[in-house]
């Protein structure tokens, strides 16, 4: 077994996560409700999830 096999397996795993999400979990994508390309200057509050965000009380 060589490293290429491992890389292909990992890429397939990632593709599987995305496919499962699209097929079974997530709401359909809608680019027309997407935020502007840049958060800076958008006038919108930062809303993304981050590992450093304190947990809900």
């Amino acid at each position: 077994m060589i490293r290429a096999h491992v890389t292909v397996a990992v890429l397939l795993l990632v593709a599987g996560v995305v496919a499962f999400d699209v097929g079974a979990v997530a709401k359909p994508l809608n680019p027309y409700t997407a935020p502007p390309m840049l958060a800076l200057g958008s006038g919108m509050a930062a809303a993304g999830a981050h590992c450093a965000a304190p947990p809900p009380k």
Partner: peptide, 11 residues
């Protein structure tokens, strides 16, 4: 975030 697509999650 769970309901939205993983393709809209920053991390």
């Amino acid at each position: 975030q769970l309901a939205a697509s993983v393709l809209t999650d920053v991390t």
